[in-house]
Design a protein around this nucleic acid. Structure first.
Lengths: 181, 181
DNA sequence: ACTGTTTTAGCACAGATGTCTCACATATAC
DNA sequence: GTATATGTGAGACATCTGTGCTAAAACAGT
């Protein structure tokens, strides 16, 4: 991200510096735009799978229900090269958003988006008769979001220690712990 | 971190540019040093509490055991202003370490350090007769590390949505799920 | 008191970056 | 066909960055 100067962006796009500046008044505007595009791409992947899940009848078999939910949440993990690249960029933007008010608003939208996805999956899961009784949806959503964020972070920062398969199985094991065996 | 230029560092320290350069050959060296100091400070907080836990007899009461373990792991969360600042810096360094070989080695040491702390707490917990039978220590350590990383990230990036108290209670709720009620 | 080392300070250079301004080309509309 | 947006390109400027080099100052041991 430190290399994402106006000149480098222009060169990478095969444009002149002035051309890029024609579309984006500031570098800040360019950055905010890139942030939003990146965030959207990440969340749309999960959202697409989520509507699939909510449209169809939920399976009664625990293993199938779990697989269905894991399939949605998995989309939030950096499993392949493309989503991994998106995840790295997303992290850098989120850190910048802490001190950049333009990015800050974009980050808030992103938080709401993932919160909605995870929250809806948790509801689907906990409203099911197979769920462990007594679990509080809000609390479990918070725990699950924490786990997902952490797994993403680990998979991005230390892919050697946290390969995709391990992330997937950890996610599934966690979801399994929310269901009665 | 983008503001951590040699000149800014020197000014903040009340020194001249040449003085800083006398102690650090490169800026890379300065950065690596700062990274290691910061990492160490984070891990030492948890390690100190861990040796306390391992020295004393473990409580037989579930609530006390949980509190003891949570007390250690809590140290890895950004609960106060000081640890929060450390956590932000740590995150920025970790992202840089992805593409900076000097920082990369330092990051590996850090991963090992937290892995050891979390792993030892998980062992203390799962070897206890109060633990849910059938849990695999390595898997639970991985899940717990993911959760801790994610909670830290959320608490740092969106303190308004993830206040310290919520992080603490989420952590305790997770540990509670590893014990038989 | 002298000497050699450590520490501090300052200057200068090349490179990169954001931003500004102006000139040129190319569509678009009347 | 001409006038008007719209897009493209290039040069210049001030600023900040890391780094190399030099000299003054502070200090230590003898």
């Amino acid at each position: 991200m430190a290399q994402a100067s106006l000149r480098n962006v222009a060169a990478e796009a095969g444009l002149a510096l002035g051309s890029v500046r024609h579309y984006f008044e500031n570098q800040a505007e360019l950055m905010e735009f890139a942030f939003r595009v990146n965030s959207e791409r990440i969340h749309l992947r999960a959202l697409d799978k989520l509507v699939e899940l909510e449209e169809t009848e939920l399976p009664t078999e625990p293993a199938d229900l779990l697989e269905k939910c894991a399939g949605v949440l998995e989309e939030l993990l950096p499993l392949d090269a493309a989503s991994s690249a998106d995840a790295v960029v997303h992290m850098e933007f989120l850190l910048d958003a802490r001190t950049n008010s333009l990015l800050f608003d974009a980050a808030q939208d992103g938080y709401r988006a993932t919160g909605a996805v995870v929250g809806r999956v948790v509801l689907q899961l906990l409203e099911n008769p197979l769920a462990v009784p007594g679990l509080v949806p809000v609390d479990e959503a918070e725990r699950l979001m924490g786990l997902l964020d952490g797994l993403s972070l680990r998979m991005v920062l230390q892919p050697a220690w946290a390969p995709p398969a391990q992330g997937q199985s950890t996610l599934r094991r966690h979801l399994l712990s929310l269901l009665v065996s």
